[in-house]
Structure formats: structure tokens, C-alpha cells
Design a binder for these strands. Structure first.
Lengths: 167, 167
DNA sequence: TATTGTTATACTCTATAACTATA
DNA sequence: TATAGTTATAGAGTATAACAATA
């Protein structure tokens, strides 16, 4: 797979983070697939459960676009895990509620995820595990060098006009 | 940004890895943009430099599709950083060479990346830094729980036939 | 006029299929 | 027949624009 030496790989922080992130995401998706939901479904469902939020509020909380939320809720509602109820105070808005089946799925998902994290972090001795997590929180936390996700997520994503379609 | 408590965030391994990976990728892209290249450009350019590889070999080494390599090399060649030369032994194949400008850019990029990594890891005390990197290598390494990227990268990505276009 | 949720659609990214020229 | 590189394009994901109903 990788023809580089162990030292070279250890020095490649981007590779280490990317691989860790992707591999864990893949295992997470596989695990949650047994419950017929995606990681995003879990994210939305678990956040919707407690509070009575509108779609827009939920989208903001889950850091996704409102149009992506529409698609996600369409599927969750179709699968009987969530429900859209008209807001009593604003006839434009719709409150997202988790169904009983949804609560059950979220509970099972929590167990699945806990087991996954335990399995992954279990390979590290307890002491090293704590140091590792502390370091990760330091890097990613509000004052850390990996705090911001800002800038250049992809490309401008602007709609093409006749004049901008130069490339 | 994140309304969760510090403990909740510390317990969310997916979030920590995703944010670390994305934030570092963003900083990397920003840094390399000053040299007018993308992270992928650097990856290809640095691997092409030493050996005299064909496009296909280079694509395999860089873990990308040969069609993606074509697009990448089109741009690198257009920018005068790489060159395609006919293979002396196989008239179908083309050897990828790094130009003098390409070598210069790679050298500058290495410095930029080294500085970035030093800046990021510099927030950790030396001892913690070593424990952290050891742990990361353990998790991601060949015998670790985050070794494989396998399975379900996205969706099947098969061309639609009349019968499969059910969804 | 501004905002909520929806629909339609455009843009990026990446990979599959088909093609040309060799082997 | 099989393979290297190319081109065309499909598929997935996600965001922008426009719209209807309501504030």
C-alpha cells in the first residue's frame, strides 16, 4: 500500500489525520448501516430528540444547509424515525420530532458508537489514551492551531454567469 | 459554534478526527496556494521528481485514478512544473518529469509544509507530542483499528442501467 | 419586505466507459 | 487480445436561486 518508511509516515501529519478520519468514518458508516441509518441521520436524529426545533434551527445546529436538511428529513420521515409538525406559533415553520422508533434507533446507535470508540481507543494503554485525547482536544479546541475550518472549503460555488464561465 | 460541553466533545472521536483533518487540510491548501499549487499537485510533483515513472505508475503511487492524473498533469504541464516525455521503451506510455521550476516549487513546498507542521505540533510539549504521534501511528498503522479505508468509500458508483435506476 | 420550507438546478469532484494508438 | 493515455460523461454530494406561503 504505502511504500514509505515508518518515519516518513510518522512525519506526515496530514496523512495520519486523513487516514484516521476516513477509516473511522468508514467504520462508523458500516456500524450504523446495521441500523439502516447514516452518520448524518444519527446526527440529526440525536439533536432533534430533546429539543423542539424547527428545520432551520436544526440545520444550523447540525452545521448543514437547509436544503440538505429537507432531503435528510424526507428520508427519516419516510422511514418512520422522525416527524414534521406544524409550529404552533409560526405557520411557516415545522417542528421536527423524533418518533418512538427514532428514539429506539438513536439509543441503539449510541451503543454501537460507544462500542466502536472503545474498540478503537482500546488498543492504547489507558495512560497513553488520556494523553492522546488531551492533545487532540488541545489541537482542535478553540485556542488550538486546528480550530478553524474556515476559508476555501471547496471552490466559490457561485452560479455561473456568461462572463464568469471563462475557465 | 459548538454548544456541547468539553467532555462531550472529548468523547466524540469522529468529530475530533474530522475537524483535525479538515482544519489541517484547509491550512495546507492555504499555505500551498501561495506557491500556486494544490495539495494534490504537491503530492504528484514530489513523487514524480525522483523516479522516472509513467502516468499510470504515478497514479498508482499517488492513489488516484489515471483519469484524475491526466487532469492534474494537464495543469502542472500548463504551469511549467512538469513535462510529459515519450517512453523510450513503450510508445504508448509517457514518462512524467519534473521541470526545474517544478523542483524549485517542491523544495519551497516542503519548507512551507514543515513550517506548518511545526506550527501545529508546536503547541504540544515535546513529551506529549511524541506520545501523541506514537498513538496516532498505532491507530492508523497496519495492525491498528484504523488501518483500512476499505468498503463503502461512497456509493457503488456504477453506471445507471434502466433497471438499477430504481431509487 | 423578510423569512420558512420547498423545488429545481448548477457546480465540483471523481470514477466508469469508450476510444485511439500502440503492445 | 490487452494496455497507456485520453476524452466524454455519469453519478453522488452539496449549495445557490427562485418560489409559495406566511410573518
Amino acid at each position: 500500500m504505502d511504500t514509505r518508511s515508518a518515519e516518513e509516515i510518522r512525519a506526515d501529519l496530514s496523512y495520519l489525520f486523513d487516514k484516521a478520519s476516513q477509516a473511522l468514518a468508514a467504520r462508523m458508516a458500516d456500524s450504523l448501516a446495521t441500523l439502516r441509518i447514516s452518520p448524518r441521520d444519527y446526527c440529526v436524529l440525536s439533536k432533534a430528540g430533546s429539543a423542539a426545533l424547527t428545520q432551520g434551527e436544526l440545520a444550523e445546529l447540525a452545521l448543514m444547509d437547509k436544503t440538505t436538511m429537507v432531503v435528510t428529513l424526507d428520508r427519516l420521515e419516510g422511514d418512520g424515525l422522525a416527524r414534521r409538525t406544524p409550529s404552533p406559533t409560526d405557520r411557516r415553520a415545522r417542528i421536527v420530532e423524533t418518533t418512538d422508533a427514532g428514539y429506539s434507533t438513536v439509543a441503539q446507535a449510541r451503543t454501537v458508537i460507544d462500542n466502536l470508540y472503545a474498540d478503537v481507543l482500546g488498543v492504547l494503554p489507558a495512560e497513553q489514551r488520556e494523553v492522546f485525547l488531551d492533545a487532540l482536544v488541545t489541537l482542535v479546541g478553540p485556542d488550538g492551531p486546528l480550530s478553524e475550518v474556515e476559508a476555501t472549503p471547496n471552490a466559490p460555488r457561485r452560479r455561473a454567469t456568461r462572463s464568469s464561465r471563462t475557465q
